[in-house]
């Protein structure tokens, strides 16, 4: 909004007169200016780590602790090193397989549970819903020990399944999908019921296409969450072949020194799939997040 098209209210006119300077903008614009500065500052804070990540990935080791954004001697050697290191591709594949499978599982099962909780009237459904929601209050750090014991007992340590199982369904996803299915009118489902579809078909062919934005939002959340997951994959895996990307990248630092330039290069490369996912689903996600906010 430009300064000229603001209408000045009587109250702010009085303030203007006291300032005695014709060039002074209406006070409302100071507020606007401060808002912009705050947002700008916030933006910088969020972008800086990414900029440093990119910058460091083009630096030689001697320059890593120099905080200049533009490397004095830019190099692609790090990329070469990381990409030629077979382990990187191994970890990348592990992360991709796990993130994709977990995402598919969440989109399928979370929406199924959310649908059942939203559209089927059965005794105790409120209690079930609250029980599922209450698991959101338990932090991952506390769940890690029981997960670990479970994995040991069932022989899931150091397997894909072991890495994936805690995230195959999430309470957040169930909650999100339940809220979205509230927006699907019952008439749609009843019409399908009269037309002879069974409950699974109704969910799949009628209800699911109507909540696509929510499914896309959920897919992004879950994919990002699993792509960047660190603690659990670190604990459940022993062999380097099963490391996920975030876990694998830390091994660049276990030798004599922390090889930041390699870690940053790996991190920069690992953002690519998330970028792709976001580009595919972005037209849904904003709508999804806004709607989730409204409903929540």
């Amino acid at each position: 909004m430009s300064a000229t098209d603001l209408t000045i209210k009587p109250t702010s006119e009085a303030l203007l007169k006291t300032s005695g300077n014709a060039g002074v903008r209406p006070p409302r614009n100071y507020a606007q200016f401060i808002r912009w500065m705050l947002l700008f500052g916030g933006g910088i804070l969020m972008v800086m780590p990414i900029v440093y990540m990119l910058s460091t990935s083009f630096k030689f080791p001697f320059e890593v602790y120099n905080l200049k954004l533009i490397p004095e001697e830019p190099t692609l050697e790090n990329y070469q090193l990381v990409l030629e290191d077979g382990r990187f591709f191994n970890w990348f594949t592990n992360s991709l397989v796990i993130a994709v499978l977990t995402t598919v599982s969440n989109v399928f099962f979370d929406s199924m549970v959310g649908y059942a909780l939203c559209k089927f009237k059965f005794p105790g459904r409120y209690i079930v819903f609250i029980a599922i929601l209450s698991t959101l209050m338990i932090p991952t750090e506390m769940l890690v020990i029981p997960w670990y014991l479970m994995s040991t007992k069932l022989g899931w340590l150091d397997t894909y399944w072991g890495i994936m199982f805690p995230g195959m369904m999430t309470a957040f996803g169930v909650f999100l999908m339940k809220q979205f299915f509230e927006t699907v009118p019952d008439d749609f489902l009843e019409a399908a019921r009269i037309d002879g579809l069974n409950e699974f078909q109704i969910w799949w062919t009628v209800a699911m296409p109507l909540v696509k934005p929510a499914l896309a939002a959920l897919a992004i959340f879950v994919f990002l969450g699993n792509w960047t997951a660190f603690i659990w994959p670190l604990i459940v895996t022993n062999s380097q072949e099963l490391y996920t990307l975030p876990v694998g990248l830390t091994t660049f630092s276990v030798e004599q020194q922390v090889e930041w330039e390699l870690i940053m290069t790996g991190a920069a490369l690992s953002t690519l799939p998330t970028l792709v996912v976001f580009l595919i689903f972005q037209r849904f996600i904003i709508r999804g997040v806004v709607m989730a906010g409204l409903k929540g």
Binding site: P185, D187, F188, E190, A191, R193, I194, D195, G196, L197
Partner: peptide, 14 residues
């Protein structure tokens, strides 16, 4: 419903 051989038209068309 599907075994009753009826069809229904809803208020919001569905």
């Amino acid at each position: 419903p599907k075994e009753r051989n009826i069809a229904m038209v809803f208020q919001n068309y569905a």
